[in-house]
Design a protein around this nucleic acid. Structure first.
Lengths: 110, 110
DNA sequence: GCTCAAGGCAACCATGGGGTTGCATATTTA
DNA sequence: TAAATATGCAACCCCATGGTTGCCTTGAGC
């Protein structure tokens, strides 16, 4: 329970940000739709604009999303650089799991 | 903001479970160490056994981990079937992000 | 049977997170 | 300029979550 401490400190906030249904949905929408304003992202949601704003800022703090001011609008888009880091984190865990699965199979089939 | 609702409902809890540093560390330890007892997982931690138990049960509720009683011990191990589902979720999001990245590059390089 | 170690259970606490309302501010646009 | 739109800010609420302590139960080993 020692080695991956730094890795964990980096990746846990990303998972935490993705761990809310509303935020995961926002990410999905931004994946599909490019840059959208706060109002656009609020439309079709059952919650308030302020609540959506809070969620978007959580995603921004996790580095998953970025906001650009344009006139009176605040446009939100995926953060490309951080997204790749997040992908690496996911891949790392996937590989760990692969190895664990391989070990389990060995044990079972022995 | 409509289509991926069911997918999201399934995957968000998994990310939420991984979104805590303590739990992410527990998963890493179990990846590396096979089945370990609650006491073993608590050793080396700054928190109480009961706290560790709560975290492990959160992971179990998310389907990431499973417990097996053995004598007076409670052994914890990764849940193979659910782990694969989680991997699929991660891959799905990775692909979404890949597509989003591709679109972004097209826009930038245009 | 006794003793010790591993857990279970329940109560309790503090904080943070998800949401809301109300009102002020800044841009468009007619 | 006036009206309408898109946000910002701050206070406030409620409850889930991460943690703790205290005490009881159960299995292992002598």
């Amino acid at each position: 329970m020692r080695r991956p401490r730094s890795t964990i400190a980096v990746h846990a906030p990303v998972f935490a940000a993705l761990g809310d249904p509303t935020r995961l949905r926002l990410v999905a929408v931004l994946c599909a739709g490019g840059a959208l304003s706060t109002a656009q992202l609020t439309a079709g949601t059952a919650i308030t604009r302020q609540a959506v704003t809070k969620h978007l800022e959580v995603l921004a703090d996790a580095g998953l999303v970025r906001d650009v001011r344009q006139g009176r609008e605040r446009l939100w888009e995926l953060e490309p650089s951080r997204i790749d880091e997040a992908r690496c984190a996911l891949d790392a865990i996937s590989q760990q799991w692969d190895q664990a699965l391989a070990r389990l199979k060995q044990v079972v089939e022995r």
